[in-house]
Nucleic acid binder design. Structure first.
Lengths: 333, 333
DNA sequence: CTTCCTATTTATAACGTTTTCAATGCACCC
DNA sequence: GGGTGCATTGAAAACGTTATAAATAGGAAG
C-alpha cells in the first residue's frame, strides 16, 4: 500500500543537481544540452522509473497525444472496426500517441461528437469512415483545422488525407467470377449510394455486368449497417420470387452467412456468392464461397501513418492511399 | 479558421463578475453557493459553450476519468470484446468517465501494461478478463490500490469485485441437451484449465456427463485464444479417428463454424452442437445449432457499474454479479 | 584587459483547474 | 454596539510540464 511517490522532473532535478528546465530539455532531446548532461539525466530517469505526466504535458502544450477513432453504431459488433483498431495501435507503437475509440451512439448526431472533440481538444487527430461525397464532417474538420484521415473518399474540391479500398475493382472482379460460374442475374448487396464507396461498388458492378452482357440488380442491406436478420429477410423475400438472382456479391462475412441461410431456408441449392472478407472466418463457412480479402488492419495502419504525417505538416495532396483487392480466393472448389 | 478562443473558467468569471473559484464551485455543484449565483453561472456556461479542460482537471485532482479496458491478443478480432465495449460505454454515459481500450500485444507482458497504468496513473479503474484462480494481476492491483473489476473469478482470500457468467450451468445444460439428442460421446472445446472459467466449464460438463452416464472428453481450442484454423485442425484430426465424439459443446460462434466445417470436410452428417453465442449471427449458421446466449453487453455494463461503486468506496465484498445463462435456444428444429 | 560570442544552464511564468484558507457582508443576540 | 455565527465569495497556491527570456561561464577576438 506504500505509494513510493511518483517521480517527476523535480525528483530527477534534485538527484542530478540541475534545474527542472534542464532536465525537461535533456529528456526531450533539445539541442542546447551538453551531451554528458543529457546522458546522465536519461540514466537517472530510467533508474527511478520516470515517465512524464500526460496531463501536465497536455495542459502545457495543448497537445493531447490522442488519436480518436470514431466508429458507427453497428460496427463494433463483429465488425471490421476491431481489425482497424489493431492496425492503428500497431502503427502507434513507439509514438507518444494513444487511440481512443469513440463509439457513435444512435441518438447522438455524429456532428455533435466531432464538435465536442474539436471544442475540448479531446484529440490531436481523428479517424473515421462511412464517407459521403460531400461529407459535412470533412468540411467541418477542414474548417476547424483539426487533422484527420478518412476511410473512403469525398468529392470535395479541398484535398484531405484518405485511405480507400478499391471497391470498383472488387465488384468488377466479383461479377467476372460469378459470370464465369454461369450466373446470369447477379445481385449486389449494398448500402444506399449516399456513401462514396457504395457508388464505387455499384459502378464496378454495373460495368462488369454490362461488359458480360448480364443484367445486375442491387439489393438493400449491409453488414454493420443493418443487423443480420434484416439482411436475411431482404434476401429471403427476394429469393422467393420467380425472377430471383442466381448469384450474389456481398460486402462481408455476416451478410454471406445471412444469404446462405436464406438459400438454405428457401430450398435453393445452386449457390454462387463472392464475399468481401476481413478475417479468416470466411474459410470456415460451409459451403465454401469465393472471397476477396480486404485487410482492415493494413487500412488502420495506413490511415494512422498518413495522419501522423499530416499532423507533422505534410500537405494533404499527397496523403492518399488506395488498397488494391488481392486476387480472388477460390476456395476448395 | 478563426478560433474563437476556447472559453475557460476565467472567461465565465469575467462575464459574471465573479472569482474563478466561485465559478468553479458553482459548476461543480458545491453547497456553499447562492442559488441565483449558481444558476447565473450555469446559464453563462451553457451560453458560451464552456466545457472543462480535462487535462487541467486531471493534473489538479490526480483523477484521469478514464476507465481502461484491457483486451487479450485475439479478442479484438471478431470477439466479444466489442460487445463488452458497447456495454461499458453505455454504462458510462452521463458520467465524466471515458473508456480507453488497451489491446494487449503478444510481445508485451500484461503485467508490464498494468504497471504502466498504475505508475502513470493512466486510468482510475481497470477492467479485464481471462482470470486465473490465483491471478497475479489481481494481486498487484489490490496491493497498489488501483480499482478494478474482473470478468471471471479468482480463488484468492482477499475479496475483489467481479462479474462472471455461470459457465457451470452453461456446460451442464448443453450436455443435457446433447444427451437428449442421442449423443453418447460429447466433447467440450475449451481452453486450458489455467483460467477459472474453464474449470467451471469442465466441472459442469463432467457433472452432467456423470449424471447422464456418458463419457465426455475435453478438446483443446478456444475462440480468440486460438485462431479458427487451429481449432479446425484439432477437430478435424479428432473426427478422423474411429472413436470420434458424436456431439460438441463450444464456447463461441467462431468455433461453431470451425467444427461445422470439420464435419462437412470429413463427411460426418449427424451433427449435434451446442454453442455459446454472444451475437445474433448464430441464427444464420446453417445447419442451425442450439445455442445459449451470453450477453456481453450486459457483462460490460455490470462490470462498469460495479467499478464505479468500487471507486466510490463501497466494500468489495458485495460487488459481485453472476450472469445466469438464459434457456437454451432450440432453433428451427 | 575589455568586449563579444557561443555554449550551456536557470529562473520564471504560464497552461486551467481545484483546494485551502481567509475575507467579506450581514443578521442576530445579548 | 460589538461580538458571534452563518452564508457567500475571494485570493493564492498547487498539480507537472514546457516556453520564453535571461543569466552564467569560458573562450576568442580586438
Amino acid at each position: 500500500m506504500a505509494h513510493p511517490e511518483r517521480p517527476t522532473l523535480k525528483t530527477i532535478a534534485a538527484i542530478a543537481g540541475l534545474a527542472v528546465t534542464t532536465v525537461s530539455r535533456a529528456l526531450a532531446g533539445a539541442p542546447q544540452i551538453a551531451p554528458e548532461t543529457r546522458a546522465r539525466v536519461q540514466r537517472i530517469a530510467v533508474e527511478i522509473g520516470y515517465s512524464p505526466d500526460r496531463a501536465a504535458q497536455r495542459l502545457r502544450t495543448g497537445r493531447s497525444n490522442v488519436i480518436a477513432l470514431i466508429l458507427p453504431p453497428h460496427e463494433e459488433i463483429l465488425g471490421y472496426g476491431a481489425s482497424m483498431f489493431r492496425g492503428i495501435t500497431r502503427a502507434l507503437r513507439g509514438t507518444p500517441y494513444h487511440v481512443v475509440v469513440m463509439p457513435h451512439f444512435e441518438d447522438i448526431p455524429e456532428a455533435e461528437m466531432l464538435d465536442k472533440i474539436i471544442r475540448n481538444r479531446l484529440a490531436d487527430g481523428v479517424l473515421f469512415s462511412r464517407i459521403r461525397p460531400d461529407d459535412m464532417r470533412v468540411k467541418t474538420l477542414l474548417e476547424e483545422g483539426m487533422p484527420f484521415v478518412t476511410h473512403g473518399r469525398t468529392e470535395l474540391a479541398t484535398p484531405h488525407p484518405w485511405v480507400d479500398y478499391d471497391n470498383f475493382t472488387y465488384a468488377y472482379r466479383a461479377v467476372e467470377r460469378l459470370v464465369a460460374l454461369g450466373v446470369r442475374r447477379p445481385a449486389l448487396v449494398s448500402a444506399p449510394p449516399s456513401q462514396t464507396f457504395c457508388q464505387h461498388l455499384r459502378a464496378g458492378f454495373f460495368r462488369a455486368c454490362g461488359e458480360a452482357g448480364v443484367v445486375g440488380e442491387v439489393l438493400p442491406g449491409f453488414d454493420m449497417e443493418d443487423p443480420p436478420d434484416v439482411i436475411y429477410r431482404h434476401i429471403r423475400d427476394r429469393l422467393a420470387r420467380s425472377d430471383a438472382p442466381d448469384g450474389f456479391i456481398c460486402p462481408g462475412e455476416v451478410s454471406a452467412l445471412a444469404i446462405n441461410a436464406a438459400w438454405v431456408d428457401t430450398g435453393v441449392d445452386t449457390r454462387h456468392l463472392v464475399m468481401k472478407s476481413t478475417s479468416d472466418i470466411a474459410n470456415f463457412i460451409r459451403p465454401q464461397f469465393d472471397s476477396i480479402f480486404e485487410d482492415m488492419t493494413e487500412t488502420g495502419e495506413r490511415m494512422t501513418g498518413l495522419l501522423l504525417r499530416y499532423i507533422a505538416g505534410e500537405p494533404a495532396e499527397q496523403l492518399h492511399h488506395v488498397i488494391s483487392p488481392p486476387p480472388l480466393a477460390v476456395i476448395g472448389r
